[in-house]
Design a binder for these strands. Structure first.
Lengths: 163, 163
DNA sequence: TAAAATAGTCAAGCATGATTTACTAAATGA
DNA sequence: TCATTTAGTAAATCATGCTTGACTATTTTA
């Protein structure tokens, strides 16, 4: 294969690459979401914080469990939760079933998750405007399936290094 | 709205959220890609490194230009490029048109981008197996459109803070 | 041709995100 | 009941990823 042919092929592959698109889209949503949430809440929200949200159950989640899910130490999670409580996004309530434990909840106050949700919803709306409802549905469906696949792969590669 | 109703609605919204799916998928591809590449190359590749790749042109790219594209200082990029050169993934060649400048290229040696590409291609293949060719096409098309939208939004929010 | 701009390097410093070690308090269980 | 495990906190420490400021070597331009 000639050098030029290789280069054209490579460039084309990069264009078409779904992995690459996923990488970039993920980062953009992340940055955009944090920027908007920060502006709206007036709080020093960082990516490290938003990373926790998907793992907080609505019934509340213990710190250790949260740490296990996110994959970092409970001490590290503890600091982040402290900051989120300070910002008014989360709350700590005693665990009724275990006197040692406390559960991390979404806060219900005025600058609670609702504001955070409205930020995500805003990005969502922007996207839907651009893609149209059918496009949005397609994206949603395939993404869900892709996510399941990726999660399975990630699970796998924790034990055996890689495929 | 009752507390329980709110909670159900919230959980459902989280499930359906495309933004959330994009966030998670992006992170998973990122981690998976870095893990596989690291295992294959036997090099201490980090996310900061892989972030550069999409911005390196095949004709070679100047450091300053690369920094501008990535959005960080040229000094920071310089360190990362040094490390990638050390790993054998990139090369520096003098710029024929400017004696001050050098261009960053993908290396052509044995542990070059080709290996890196094969990693991305591997993830790609895993995804395609799971989604099927039509699903993959749908995902690719909608992602490309979503990406354009997100990039426009990101561009915008740099100037005016947020929407 | 002298002055200003540009490409890149070097080094110091800083915030972030995490780990490790050490501890307290409550629960479990032999 | 006493020993062990578990939930959480506290503090020191570390690598990472980045910025800022200062400098050299070229190129551009006035």
């Amino acid at each position: 294969m000639s050098d030029e042919a290789f280069q054209r092929e490579f460039a084309a592959a990069k264009e078409r690459s779904v992995s690459h698109a996923l990488l970039k889209a993920g980062r953009l949503v992340d940055e955009l979401g944090v920027a908007r949430a920060r502006a709206r809440l007036g709080a020093p929200l960082r990516r490290a914080h938003t990373r926790l949200f998907p793992y907080v159950d609505l019934e509340g989640t213990r710190l250790s469990e949260l740490a296990r899910r996110v994959g970092i130490s409970k001490q590290a999670v503890g600091v982040l939760v402290d900051e989120l409580v300070e910002m008014g996004a989360l709350e700590r309530r005693p665990d009724p079933e275990d006197g040692r434990a406390r559960r991390v909840h979404f806060a219900t106050g005025p600058r609670s998750v609702l504001d955070g949700l409205s930020v995500l919803a805003g990005i969502e709306a922007d996207l839907e405007r651009a893609l149209g409802a059918p496009g949005m549905r397609q994206l949603q469906r395939q993404l869900t399936r892709a996510l399941a696949t990726l999660e399975a792969l990630a699970e796998h590669s924790q034990s055996d290094g890689h495929s």
